[in-house]
Amino acid sequence: MIPLSWFLLVAAALFCIGLYGVLSRRNAVGILMSIELMLNAVNLNLVAFWRYRAPLDSLGQAFVLFVLVVAAAEAAVGLALVIAVYRSRETIVMEDIDLMKW
């Protein structure tokens, strides 16, 4: 049987890679993709803990489903925002979208 810590290590690495993408990407769609990576890392953690710690309770799987729903909503609204910004400002480089910065 695979040790629980292996899954946790993979999820931690995936989360850190996604965090790097969020912090360093200039393209807004690239940032959204990195956020999806981070959400996947969290889901992987949830499923791993469900399988190894509480396999007879379905709370872990139910939680993963709700995270998936929120991720889908986030992707839809985020990409709609990207397209709206692109239409009005002709750019999706995050440094140029600074209207609300002071």
Partner: peptide, 18 residues
């Protein structure tokens, strides 16, 4: 879809890291 709709401005010659 979103990448293709916004593709014209983000070609590979541009810097992708801040």
């Amino acid at each position: 879809f979103a990448i293709m709709l916004t593709r014209r401005l983000m070609n590979t010659h541009q810097r992708q890291r801040n």
